[in-house]
Amino acid sequence: MSISVQHISKSFKTVNAVNDVSFEVKEGELFGLIGPDGAGKTTIFRILTTLLFADKGTVTVAGFDVVDDYKEIRNHVGYMPGKFSLYQDLTVEENLNFFATIFGTTIEENYELIKDIYVQIEPFKNRRAGALSGGMKQKLALSCALIHKPKVLFLDEPTTGVDPVSRKEFWEMLKRLQQKGITILVSTPYMDEAELCDRIALIQHGKILQIDTPQEIVKHYPKKIYDVKADNMYRLLESLKSYEHHYSVYPFGEFVHYTDKREDFNPQELQQYLEAKKHQNIKIEITKTTIEDTFMELAK
C-alpha cells in the first residue's frame, strides 16, 4: 500500500472535521476524494502530508508513519495545496530552483519528469509567480510539487474554479504522471472528474460515504432513474415534486432525474399526470445512474 489511513479523526473546537475515516491507496493508483467544500478533504490532506496531527487513528504514506517518520515522508511526497502557496515575488525559475534546492536536487536532474508541464511555462521563466495567470500558476505549483521526484503526489482541489477545457488538460497531465509510476491522491468537488480516477471515496461532513471504482460505485444506487423533460423546466420541477409517488427530483442538465417510491413504477402513469398538468413535449426515458446521483442519495 502506498497510503494507508486507519480510523483517523480530527476536531477543531466544536467542528468534527474528519470523523473515523479509513481508506487505502495502492501503489501507482489514481485515487480521488470526491466531496463538496467543507467535507474535510483539506484536513485529510494536511494530516497525510504531516502538517497536522490527527486526534485519533494512524496513517502511513510510502511505508512511513506520518507522526514518527514525518521528516522522511516529506522527502517522498509532493503536495499541491488548494491555495496557491509559492513565492509570489520570486520568478517562475527561482521558485522551481528554490524547491529543488530544499530537496537537495536540481532542475536538470529531474527535468524529464516535469518537462511535459514545465515547457508550457518555461517561456515565462523570468516572470514573477504573482503575475502569472491562474492556469500558469497551477502548472508551476505542480512542477514544484514534482521536482524532487516524489513517490506520492497530493493534489488538493487542483481544478476548482478552472474551466472545462483546462480541467480536461489537467487530467490528461495527471494520467501521464500516473504512467510514470507516481501514486496520486487528488480531491475535487466536480463529480464528473470522479470518473477519471481508478477508485474514489465519496466524502461529506468528515465521513466517507462509499469507496469503490467509479464503475462500481453507481451500482450502490438503489433505484431506477428516469430522465424527464418538458418545455418549462421550472413548472416541470414543481409538478414532479408535487407528484405523490416521487422519491427524488433533481435537475440534471437538460433533464430532470426522477425516481419513484414504487417498485412497480410505470412511466406511462407519470406521463398522464404531466399531461393533465398541461406540460408540453413530455419525454420520459430510463437513464444511466451517474456518480452525482449516487452521491446525492448517499448524502441525503
Binding site: 508550457q120 511555462i121 517561456p123 515565462f124 503575475a131 502569472l132 495567470s133 491562474g134 492556469g135 500558469m136 500558476k137 474554479g161 478552472v162 474551466d163 472545462p164 477545457v165 483546462s166 488538460e169
Partner: peptide, 14 residues
C-alpha cells in the same frame, strides 16, 4: 472554447 494564449494575463484566476 480554446485556451487563450498563455502569454495573456487572466482575470480572476490571476
Amino acid at each position: 472554447a480554446r485556451i487563450t494564449s498563455p502569454a495573456l494575463p487572466q482575470g480572476k484566476g490571476a
